Simulated assay, not measured.
Amino acid sequence: MNDVQSSSVPLQPARFSTGAVPERDRFDAWREYLRPVADLTPIAHRQRKASIDLATWDLGSFAMCQESSSGTRFSRTLRRVKTIFADHWYLFLIKEGANWVVSDGGCSAEQVSRGTSGQVGFYSLGEAFHGEMQPMEILMLFIPRDQFARQAGTLDRLNNTIIDTARGRLLSDYMLALERRLPELTKEDVPAIVRATEAMITACLAPAPHSAEEAREGIILSLGERARRVVQSQLSNPKLTPASLAKSMGVSRSVLYRLFEPHGGAARYVRNTRLASAHRALCDFAETRQIQQIADSFGFTCAQEFSRAFRQRYGYSPSELRADCSQSVRRLCGQTTEGGRTLDEFLRTTA
């Protein structure tokens, strides 16, 4: 098949369904499938037997998920934020049903949002939260943080809010229109869809600042995102230090300190980012390298140092994590999936 024929092939979602799973195992299968997002707990016994259907449409820079569920309690603990690395935002459009969410940390600590049918909420997988949703029909749009690096500070302040404004309703309309067109889209349509979605999100959630103070704050926040991107690009360099990072960015050590002060300093941020990246690799069932080879690729040249830092950060060893992730993959093998990149694969490959 040539490139023209390949690009005109209709998009196919990765589908997950528990319809063919024994009733007693359905909720557990759903819980396992959504582990990268949150831990699920049934509200009532009948929910364990209900069938769950979820379709993930891979739009390259975004992933749109359609889900029909029986409702659940959910939580994303601070430990889960650390151990399952997915620093994404997501828009949560309620087509039917209702939910409530409580922030358990970060800038939005203790903030509560309550959504009902027709409303869209904005959440971050980089923050801890817990809540509950009723039997629901929902539409979710997952957004890699790097896709909106310049607007990151503005979007972070929207974490765990219901966008109940004219712009929020416009965004809801756009998501529904995009959902209706998904079955008609081909691979060659994806770049245009990405550009349109970026423009819509920016216009509705992060419009240009209207004052000098807002603009100044935006410059500071953008500098922080730039620092983050430099760190990500140099994780394999064992000589990456706060001094070399400041030099790469052309800023002073004092400016760098202020940027990373909320993270405990630049050195701690670099170390934790390396550990999180190694954690992701160890959870990747397609990753065949030895543990020390993975550690080397993220700047850890000493096996003992890596193992000690990893256990201190997560409470278990790299080998224990790899064994646990292998068991999780085996548990998923009997479930019904088809199509392209799953939600888990999207989160792992776009974080």
Rank of each mutant, 00 (worst) to 15 (best):
A281D: 03
R150Q: 13
L245K: 09
F300H: 03
R48W: 02
L155Q: 12
Y314S: 02
L170V: 09
E305A: 08
A212F: 07
F310S: 01
D3I: 14
E198T: 07
T288R: 12
P318L: 05
D156Y: 12
H263F: 08
F129P: 05
F346L: 05
R181P: 03
L205V: 07
L282K: 03
A109N: 10
F285D: 10
V120K: 04
G264S: 03
P13Q: 01
R216D: 15
M133Y: 13
S103K: 10
W89D: 08
R268W: 02
T350H: 14
A149Y: 11
A208E: 12
F142M: 04
T288G: 06
Q47L: 12
C302I: 03
C283T: 05
A309Q: 15
D53N: 13
R216L: 15
S103Q: 14
D146K: 13
L223C: 08
R15C: 07
E127I: 00
R157K: 12
A109C: 04
G131K: 03
R271H: 12
I43R: 14
D25I: 00
G218S: 11
V112K: 15
S211G: 13
H130D: 02
A14C: 15
L176W: 04
G126E: 12
V329L: 04
Y123G: 00
A29S: 14
F62E: 02
L332A: 13
H45G: 05
D53K: 08
L332H: 04
I220N: 06
G71S: 04
R268A: 11
L59R: 05
Q292L: 08
S319I: 04
E214Q: 13
I43C: 09
G265F: 11
F142G: 01
R180A: 13
Y316W: 11
A55P: 05
S70D: 12
Q292W: 06
R15N: 02
E198H: 07
E338K: 07
A206G: 02
A309R: 15
S319Q: 08
Y174A: 09
R180N: 05
L155C: 12
S51P: 00
P36W: 00
G118R: 07
L332E: 10
F300C: 04
L347S: 00
T337W: 07
D296A: 06
G97S: 13
I294L: 07
L11S: 06
A149K: 09
P13N: 01
A212C: 02
R216N: 14
G106V: 09
